[in-house]
Design a protein around this nucleic acid. Structure first.
Length: 575
DNA sequence: GCCGTTTTCGGCCCGACTGTTTTCAGTCG
């Protein structure tokens, strides 16, 4: 059984234990372990072979054994026994809003064992008559079931941001609003988000909530209160707004930013120090009095625990708290550190703008350099360049550089297809004419892990390769990554002194941030690439910066934070 | 089920909102 399947089993065990009304901490233990596996940057196989599973946070003797059994045998007697205790469809009821283990237990006692049966019973008005339920609950169950069907998907970070920003702007303009921010996973810049969270400080919350719940795009008001409201919009996304007093703002912003796991860890730390953190502030348990500070900030909150400020992107409980404690947090890369970009297409292949237009746009953005990389000939769907057209583009770029038409220096490159056998789409004599070569897989996604890994490593070992494009081929919320042993590929890249890009396309954001901390420690560097298909697309480098920040990366890890001269000499040397 | 410079037991984050139950349990984030 592979890692993802094991993660599913652990979560399913947690669901069943929850329905069985088990110790909630035991339930959480399974969920924590699943999450630890999700965020794993090393290969699970290695950890099991080297018997290091138990060293992972949240995985002890028992779970380490269970995971090992699942991995080697593909099944787990404990899980099989557990499944027998609960009818198959029952755990799907947990997805329905307003239903938790207790309510589901009462439903089960009345003979309801699946979402389908529940729907029927609601429609017949039977649910409202069960003690603890009522007309409203019955109605809410039905509408939640509808929503699950229609709204089940998550949202790309970029899409959610586009929805959130105009609302934030309006929110800040409301008369009684003093300060407002985006919170939640959107603030942490997760690649996909489930909802949008806002936090605001205002002295007339009623008025602001009235404005919020009557926004033009509202399709449903899910919750309306003076401190908290939730709406669903025409984009089918849920938006939450919390309003507090200015004095509480910093704490609530922190609380609402999460991640949940980060907050739990932080509260545990506070407890050790005799403090109690909640969204309302910090209380010294001995003195029984709140630690007061006028208009506290998140910085104040961390400082009161003896910690350096942790940027939202790092708050995933993957070691940031320990690092803050030891004053070992990274100095994260920032947008302004990016001096130029690689990986841009033109009308020559599948881009929307010409070479000149792209160069002009890069100049306008203040970039010192722009690396042009159209598709290679095998990407016929993208009008990939053959040898002849490529040579022509190379000489055009040379001409533009010589004439100094643009302040931005142009590098000529290619996004070269990695063929089925791992060889590249162009022979050496063509590749050596280029300043840089990005190698990417655009077809043949179906191979098994061993085949795909070998194929990619072969491409990495090609002496003309500069960097790997969109490593896993994933399209977020649309297409799964192809099977790949990522740690092995990372090791190969380091051994061959090659770069793995961070592709800033909203649906790619590939290689995933979860791998970067460990990979960079081993010596891997990246290039934050927009994979631009238009002048506008150049801006996607900023989404790549988000991912780099989530991956703990600093300036020294980022090729395109270097000035032009250093890049020129690096590219020459690496040939 | 995990975890440990208050350690091998006894904790494990904490409070708002909803609906129904009229004093609060359950759910949620």
């Amino acid at each position: 059984m592979n890692k993802n399947e094991i993660i599913d089993v652990l979560n399913e065990i947690a669901d069943i234990l929850e329905l069985l009304n088990e110790n909630p901490f035991r339930v959480r233990a399974y969920r924590n372990a699943a999450r630890t596996l999700e965020n794993l940057s090393e290969s699970l196989e290695n950890l099991i072979q080297e018997e290091k599973l138990e060293k992972l946070p949240g995985i002890g003797k028992d779970l380490s054994e269970k995971i090992t059994t699942l991995f080697t045998k593909g099944k787990l007697p404990f899980f099989q026994e557990l499944k027998k205790k609960i009818p198959k469809g029952l755990s799907e009821l947990l997805e329905i809003e307003g239903l938790g283990p207790k309510k589901i237990a009462s439903l089960y006692k009345k003979g309801i064992k699946s979402s389908k049966e529940l729907k029927k019973a609601c429609e017949e008005g039977k649910i409202a008559k069960i003690s603890g339920f009522g007309e409203k609950t019955q109605k809410n169950i039905l509408s939640s079931q509808e929503n699950i069907k229609r709204y089940s998907s998550r949202f790309l970070y970029f899409k959610a941001l586009q929805i959130a920003l105009p609302i934030l702007e309006e929110l800040k303009k409301q008369k009684s609003v003093e300060i407002a921010d985006i919170a939640g996973s959107l603030r942490r810049k997760k690649e996909t988000v489930g909802d949008i969270d806002f936090v605001a400080a205002a002295n007339n919350p009623k008025e602001v909530m009235k404005w919020f719940t009557s926004l033009k795009t509202v399709t449903k008001v899910l919750v309306k209160g003076d401190t908290k409201s939730s709406i669903k919009t025409t984009e089918r996304i849920q938006i939450d707004l919390r309003i507090v007093k200015k004095e509480e703002y910093g704490y609530v912003l922190h609380h609402s930013t999460g991640s949940k796991e980060h907050n739990i860890h932080l509260r545990g730390l506070a407890k050790e120090k005799g403090l109690k953190i909640s969204e309302w502030g910090i209380v010294d348990k001995n003195k029984k009095s709140p630690i007061t500070k006028k208009n506290p900030t998140e910085q104040d909150l961390y400082a009161s625990l003896g910690l350096k400020y942790i940027p939202p992107e790092l708050r995933e409980n993957t070691g940031e708290i320990e690092a803050a404690r030891k004053n070992k947090l990274p100095t994260l890369i920032e947008e302004k550190d990016i001096l130029g970009v690689f990986h841009a297409h033109t009308t020559e292949s599948d881009g929307k703008n010409s070479l000149e237009e792209m160069a002009k746009a890069a100049e306008k953005m203040g970039f010192q350099y722009l690396g042009i990389s159209d598709h290679s000939k095998s990407s016929t769907q993208a009008n990939g360049l053959d040898e002849k057209r490529l040579e022509k583009q190379i000489s055009e770029i040379k001409k533009l550089n010589r004439s100094k038409t643009f302040k931005t220096h142009l590098f000529s490159g290619i996004e070269c297809d990695i063929l089925g056998d791992g060889t590249l789409d162009f022979p050496d004599n063509i590749l050596k004419m280029l300043d840089f070569v990005i190698v990417s897989i655009h077809r043949g996604f179906k191979g098994d892990e061993k085949t795909m890994t070998k194929r990619l490593i072969k491409a990495i070992e090609n002496p003309h390769t500069t960097m790997v494009g969109h490593l896993t081929g994933r399209l977020l919320l649309k297409r799964e990554p192809y099977h790949l042993n990522i740690p092995k590929v990372i090791d190969a890249a380091i051994a061959n002194k090659k770069i793995i890009e961070i592709n800033g396309q909203p649906q790619r954001l590939d290689m995933d941030w979860r791998h970067w901390h460990a990979a960079s420690k081993k010596g891997l560097i990246t290039s934050i690439n927009p994979d631009a298909h238009s002048t506008d697309g150049l801006k996607f480098f900023s989404l790549g910066v988000n991912i780099a920040r989530k991956g703990w990366l600093e300036k020294k890890h980022i090729l395109n934070s270097w000035p032009l001269e250093k890049i020129i000499s690096y590219l020459k040397k690496s040939k």
